[in-house]
Design a protein around this nucleic acid. Structure first.
Lengths: 249, 249
DNA sequence: TCCGTTATCCCCAGAACTGGGGAGATCATC
DNA sequence: GATGATCTCCCCAGTTCTGGGGATAACGGA
């Protein structure tokens, strides 16, 4: 079993890494030390960074990597979907208790098994305004996971992702800056997301309808979108508003 | 210094907790064990106004809690802002390197110090579609933090937040039956969420614009909403569509 | 065979949104 | 004292949505 000291050593090494290669090497090493065979440190989609600035350090069976890309599973993969429901690591064997698996999901999991992946452990990595990601470690088929060290595995996953993020940020010169909305704009968008009209929002905020229209105009401009629906969803996606803001009554 | 075994014991206890009180007690205990004096496990929303389904377990100096609510700092507090830029724990002394501190931020930090808070460590907790939160542990003024155990503190913070989340979810309302949309309706809603007009959606699906209008009319009816924005967000919330459907190019 | 569901299309009137223009006030910062 | 950001309000023309009312056809189950 790996020790806390080793985790800390990895953390230091990962933080010092300035290239994906260096980091890849460090992760590979600790993956083996933790008794895993495979790992994948990835962003789940490449939304606003179509040019490949997304994080992607993968050491998985070739077969599976190909099948994965073939099926464009980045965001529909059940493991990824499950990782979006928590912020602590979870064993793949628990996925069925986290999300509802449909027929396609089961097919995906079966395919992974056939490709040589055994049980695994995934650490979610979510940061408001950034693409969701995760860091997964997997055994070969048949191998047993040591539950006792999973908390340490979680730490490794978090630190690894953070290190990858740092490298990716440094590499991505034109920072895809998440548009910042003003407080008033956010209030308006939150109410838009609740299906209010400009006039209703104006009543609620105690200002003129024209003012609300203007705030939303400005907010749309900042996100570069032309529809209030898109505005609400983008604001939701990068955390300017949350489902709690919208759906609570 | 705390041991990994103690962290795991806390994790088990936290997961078993079914009321905020039980969890509060467990967190209080381990906080002391880790050498901290205060903690705050919170959602970053204004908990005075809404109905209070947000997470909020706080043991901070009274003075500070009051000042905090007075100033409505839930989302503008520099510590909270910093926590939204990472997914690993950070010492408060590092905040200046994470976000740009303005005059007001510095005033807030100074006020916290006056209220008796020393250095602290905050673990972010972000889950897509949910309110951002964090778990912070703080020393009394003048006390020194043991850097070596911070990774374990991070684990405790993550587990504590997850446990609180589980309790909050359980307390939340009985699930109202999720309306089912037809396949065609879902396709239309997904495109609505991408900001398309009925006419554009009709082109994409190869049907008449009137048909799209009708599908959306029906979909709104099923959800009992009157605005397409609300429709998109509800569909997103209960999984009929996903961010991946919307935002991938 | 009848009924419910789904998908397709049509018309209309009023409400709501969008994009363009402009303008005054406040506040913090430089 | 200027500058920029924010918030506030106004006008207008054109587009888009929304909620009514229809209709036809295919499919599958009761």
């Amino acid at each position: 079993m790996i020790s806390l000291a080793e985790v800390q050593a990895f953390c230091t090494a990962a933080n010092a890494a300035s290239t994906p290669q260096t980091l890849m090497h460090a992760v590979q090493e600790i993956t083996a030390r933790m008794g895993f065979r495979y790992f994948a440190l990835v962003h789940h989609i490449d939304l606003l960074a179509p040019d490949g600035t997304g994080i992607r350090l993968v050491h998985y069976p070739h077969e599976w990597v190909e099948a994965f890309e073939e099926g464009r599973l980045y965001a529909s993969d059940p493991i990824h979907r499950a990782s979006q429901t928590t912020n602590v690591g979870f064993a793949w064997s628990k996925v069925a208790t986290m999300i509802t698996l449909n027929a396609r999901d089961r097919a995906v999991l079966a395919a992974a098994r056939i490709a040589g992946l055994g049980n695994g452990f995934t650490i979610p990595a979510h940061i408001p305004g950034e693409t969701n990601g995760s860091c997964s470690f997997a055994m070969g088929e048949g191998d047993d996971m040591d539950d006792a060290q999973l908390p340490l595995v979680q730490l490794v996953g978090s630190f690894a992702f953070e290190a990858a993020r740092k490298i990716a940020h440094a590499a991505a010169s034109p920072i895809p800056a998440v548009p910042q909305l003003t407080e008033r704009q956010i209030e308006c968008v939150a109410l838009v997301a609740r299906g209010k009209t400009d006039w209703e929002i104006a009543r609620i905020l105690g200002v003129g309808a024209e003012t609300v229209t203007q705030h939303l105009k400005d907010a749309r401009d900042r996100y570069g979108v032309t529809k209030r629906t898109m505005l609400a969803i983008r604001a939701l996606f990068d955390g300017a508003i949350s489902f709690a803001d919208i759906l609570r009554r």
